[in-house]
Amino acid sequence: MSEANDPSISIEALRRGDRQEFARLVDHYSPLIYRLALKMLGDEQDAEDVLQNTFLQAFRHLNEFEGRSTLSTWLYRIAANEALMLLRKRRPETALTDSLPEEEPLEEPTQFIDWCCLPEEELLSAEGRARLEAAIRLLPETLRVVFLLRDIEGLSIQETSQALGLSETAVKTRLLRARLRLREMLSAYYAERLNAGRKAYD
């Protein structure tokens, strides 16, 4: 996605400790990191903590940035780790339940109502948007973070795998699981809307 494109920030200047260049980095990437954290955690205060910790970590570890990934992928990596750590601190039991989702069989679709015909303004009404957001929060965090990086932040499969330290195969599997689960949840909701519309018409 174009937002993630590097706005020609000089890594050399960052390494030299140029504070103005670091401010440019913060200025460009902080809205993206905050959006990821907010969608990951669903809480403004938690998202702000992750935002601050991400750039504090980035500042401390600039010398370790080797340029093997882009700056944005590196920042997303720090932010994703911070968000996952925060979630696991709050709910330690979740770390075990969904640690290796790619080893389980794929969940087969159960919803076969075609809701594509609903008008976009209904699909994306205020209530529809709230459902879309709520559905993301119902994903297990290991799937949620992959979906957010790939489909909301617009990272490629390769960038997502670098950001999360996962193989590309694992990213693809988790992405598919996340998308299929979201489709199931949205289908259940939009099918209700379709039925309500039909009843009103009858």
Binding site: W115, L123, L132, I152, R183, L186, S187
Partner: peptide, 14 residues
């Protein structure tokens, strides 16, 4: 179709 639409909707809400 609905999988494609699901992804499209999320892109729209980004």
């Amino acid at each position: 179709d609905t999988l494609r639409k699901t992804i499209h909707l999320y892109h729209q809400t980004a």
